[in-house]
Design a protein around this nucleic acid. Sequence first.
DNA 1: CCTATGACAGACA
DNA 2: GTGTCTGCCATAG
Length: 131
Amino acid sequence: MEFEERIRERIRAIPRGKVATYAQIAALAGNPRGARQVARVLHSCSGTAGLPWHRVINSRGGISLKRGRGFEDQKRLLAGEGVRVGRGGRVGLDEFQWQPGSVPSKGAKDFLKALESLGLRRRRRTRGHPS
DNA sequence: CCTATGACAGACA
DNA sequence: GTGTCTGCCATAG
């Protein structure tokens, strides 16, 4: 419950005209691997007025909602604040991704997590592929 | 304890 | 670029 609260705080902190990825929000909220929890929060965000849910997109720089199920709304809201949304809901992360000036850093741990969110510490488990 | 869920992310082919 | 598979983890029941 607490984690989801922090997620909402971070989403509220995204400035107009900028976007953040699910993983970025999760990392800033304290859990770099919590992207799916961000998804859960937004999935049931009715009742959470004032939450700029439309500024959260996926790591590929695209809108995750499907056509006819919110996609158009999100696209319009973003365009309304100056974010260019291209075909297929693509947004240029290089141009529009939110870069938080200061990190909350409740310790060195959070700082490292923030680094991961910036793609500077990707490091993930490899997987061996099934044929 | 268990299983299911989720607007995800990354690694492959 | 696309498609598929796996890793992930807090929450709810």
